[in-house]
């Protein structure tokens, strides 16, 4: 659980580092994209720390190209 708090602290620190300048310069589009990515990153990182089973991104590639049978069948 401590590691999840560490992730949240990192996310908060990143927000504190980046957001004020974006708000001051009225870059709201930048702020929205930043927040979306930060939330996604924090959620995924927290899930990893909580040992939630996440899908393997490389399995997507294997699924995508299963029809080729792999390069060894060349």
């Amino acid at each position: 659980m401590a590691s999840v708090f560490a992730v949240l602290a990192l996310a908060a620190a990143t927000f504190w580092l980046e957001a004020p300048a974006l708000i001051r310069q009225k870059q709201f589009r930048e702020l929205v994209i930043f927040l979306v990515l930060l939330l996604a990153g924090s959620a995924l990182y927290s899930a990893l720390m909580l040992q939630v089973k996440l899908p393997n991104p490389f399995m997507f590639i294997k699924w995508m190209y299963a029809w080729t049978g792999g390069t060894s069948t060349m």
Binding site: L17, E18, L37, L38, G41, S42, L44, A47
Partner: peptide, 12 residues
């Protein structure tokens, strides 16, 4: 500002 969130996603 996208670098740290993207870094977190890449790490996971």
């Amino acid at each position: 500002m996208l670098t740290i969130p993207l870094g977190m996603i890449l790490l996971v």
